[in-house]
């Protein structure tokens, strides 16, 4: 069993790298969707608020897997139609599973992050914002210098969970053809007929990811709250 794992370790490592890349790309996108969504929900603009509400209801109430399929196959249909307008002889265009997958899982977790960020923004002391306005800071300055740094501390515990969800959702992308560790395990199991060992190895790699994220966010939380403790 261990020889087999050793034999496939190179492929597993490559697959792990793919997961790491999807995770990092979708993490950046998740933060963007979350901040946009939370800002829209807190803004006075009724249309923006309605759009953000619809976004969170749909993306939190529908299965992750179904949304991934919708976005992957849907984007292929749309892209093909668009490209055909310019080059009519085109037969089929699609987003790579990597980008479609990263986009899909970031939108899914971004809906959860929207709620987290919304709560965290509300948790920032109103007086801080008023003080910044009194000092003559512009709206973007207030956002980036006052609200964002203080909101992070409040969002961190939930955001750690969101990062774990992101990592675990990367496994779904193997179904639409991303060549990551599930794919490696599929291939390995079909040649050496040791599916248990191969899929268990995948589970342990994911466990490694989620453990690092959980420990990492715990560390960040302690650091972020470092100056908040009055006395020990």
């Amino acid at each position: 069993m261990f020889e087999e794992l050793w034999r496939w370790s190179g492929a597993f490592m490559q697959g792990t790298l793919v997961i790491l890349l999807v995770f990092l790309v979708s993490l950046v996108l998740t933060v963007i969707w979350g901040l946009l969504g939370a800002s829209a929900k807190l803004s006075g603009n009724r249309a923006a608020k309605a759009a953000a509400d619809a976004y969170t209801v749909v993306f939190r109430g529908t299965p992750e897997f179904l949304l991934l399929l919708l976005i992957y196959f849907g984007s292929a249909v749309t892209l093909t139609a668009l490209v055909k307008l310019v080059w009519p002889q085109t037969r089929f265009v699609d987003l790579s599973p990597f980008w479609a997958g990263a986009f899909a899982i970031s939108l899914i977790v971004g809906a959860a992050a929207t709620e987290t960020f919304r709560g965290a923004f509300l948790g920032v002391d109103r007086g801080q914002v008023e003080a910044a306005q009194a000092l003559g800071l512009r709206r973007l300055q207030v956002f980036f210098l006052i609200r964002l740094p203080q909101m992070w501390r409040l969002a961190l515990p939930s955001f750690g969970n969101h990062m774990n969800s992101l990592v675990k959702d990367t496994a779904l992308i193997s179904v639409i053809g991303l060549q990551e560790i599930m794919f490696t395990a599929d291939m390995a199991a079909s040649t050496n007929s040791m599916p248990f060992a191969m899929y268990f190895a995948v589970a342990l790699i994911y466990l490694g990811f989620t453990t690092i994220i959980t420990l990492g966010t715990g560390h960040l939380e302690r650091r972020a709250n470092h100056f908040m403790t009055v006395s020990r």
Binding site: N164, K168, D169, A171, L172, V175, Y206, L207, T211
Partner: peptide, 8 residues
């Protein structure tokens, strides 16, 4: 809790 359902 630490591994994806699909893998399980």
């Amino acid at each position: 809790r630490g591994t994806p359902l699909l893998v399980q």
